[in-house]
Measured scan of single mutants.
Amino acid sequence: MQGVVKVNSALNMRSGPGSNYGVIGTLRNNDKVEIIKEVDGWYEIRFNGKVGSASKSYITIVN
């Protein structure tokens, strides 16, 4: 499943599904990500070869 980031500035990509996990990357508006699965309001995603988590509130699913 594919998604597109929708933010005003930037979205942190984290090492796990929650804001208490470390930041491993930064996503910008309109970045395209691969959604692997949903976990507690977060998506596990793949972006630029990295796997991490980002809040699903800022990612829109595209077909």
Rank of each mutant, 00 (worst) to 15 (best):
Y21Q: 03
K50T: 12
G25P: 01
I35E: 00
R28K: 13
A10T: 15
L11P: 03
I61H: 04
M13W: 08
V23D: 02
N29L: 08
G41K: 04
V39W: 10
V39Q: 10
S19K: 14
G18T: 01
L11W: 00
Y43D: 00
E38I: 07
G16T: 03
K32D: 03
I59G: 00
D40G: 12
G18H: 05
K6M: 10
F47Y: 10
K37Y: 08
A54P: 03
V23H: 04
V62S: 09
G25V: 07
E38N: 03
S15Y: 06
V51H: 08
N63G: 13
K50L: 15
D31F: 06
V39G: 04
A54V: 15
V23A: 05
R46G: 03
G52D: 02
N29K: 08
N63E: 13
P17F: 05
V5N: 01
I61G: 03
V23K: 06
S53I: 10
S15H: 05
K6H: 12
K37V: 06
R46K: 12
R28P: 02
N8R: 13
V62P: 07
T60V: 14
V39H: 10
V39K: 08
V39A: 07
N63V: 12
L11D: 03
S53W: 15
Y43C: 03
G49N: 09
W42K: 01
V33A: 01
V62A: 09
T60E: 13
I36T: 06
S9R: 12
N12V: 15
T26R: 10
I45D: 00
Y21N: 04
R28M: 12
N8Y: 12
S15V: 07
G18A: 04
G49Y: 04
N30W: 07
A54E: 02
S57M: 14
S53L: 13
Q2L: 14
W42R: 01
L11A: 11
N48P: 02
G52Y: 04
M1F: 10
K37S: 13
N8L: 12
P17D: 03
L27F: 02
V5L: 03
G3W: 05
I45P: 00
S53G: 08
A10D: 11
N30P: 03
K37H: 09
F47N: 01
Y21C: 09
R46A: 09
N48H: 10
S15N: 09
G16H: 04
S19M: 15
V4D: 02
K37L: 07
R14L: 14
T26H: 10
S55I: 14
D40Y: 08
G16F: 01
Y58K: 08
N30Y: 08
M13Q: 02
S15E: 12
K50M: 14
V51K: 08
E44I: 15
D40A: 09
S55T: 08
R46H: 08
K50P: 02
S9D: 13
M13A: 03
Y43S: 00
P17N: 07
S55A: 12
V39E: 09
M13F: 11
D40L: 08
V51E: 07
A54N: 02
E34H: 09
V4L: 11
V51Q: 09
Y58V: 07
R14T: 09
E34P: 00
Q2C: 15
V5P: 03
W42A: 01
V62H: 08
I35D: 00
S53E: 03
L27W: 00
P17Y: 03
S55R: 15
R46P: 00
A10Q: 13
K6G: 05
E44T: 12
G41N: 08
G18N: 05
A54H: 03
T26G: 02
E44F: 11
R28L: 11
Q2S: 10
N20V: 09
A54F: 03
G16I: 01
W42C: 04
P17V: 03
Q2H: 13
R14N: 07
A10K: 13
V39M: 10
N48D: 11
Y21L: 04
N29F: 08
I35H: 01
N48L: 09
I35W: 01
K32M: 13
V7Q: 03
N12R: 12
E38V: 08
E38S: 06
M13Y: 07
G49E: 07
K6P: 01
S15I: 06
L27T: 01
I35L: 03
S15L: 08
V33H: 01
L11I: 15
G41Q: 07
P17L: 03
K56D: 03
L27C: 05
L11C: 15
G16N: 03
S53T: 09
A10E: 14
T60P: 05
K32T: 12
V33N: 00
W42F: 07
V39F: 10
T26C: 13
E38A: 06
K6N: 10
K37N: 12
N29W: 07
F47W: 10
V23F: 05
N29E: 07
N12D: 15
E38C: 09
E38L: 07
F47I: 08
G49A: 05
S55K: 15
I59C: 04
R28T: 08
G22W: 08
K56T: 10
G52Q: 02
M1W: 12
V39C: 10
A54Q: 02
E34T: 11
Y21H: 08
Y58N: 11
R14C: 11
V51M: 09
S55Y: 14
S53Y: 15
K50D: 06
T60F: 14
R28A: 10
T26V: 14
K56F: 05
I59V: 07
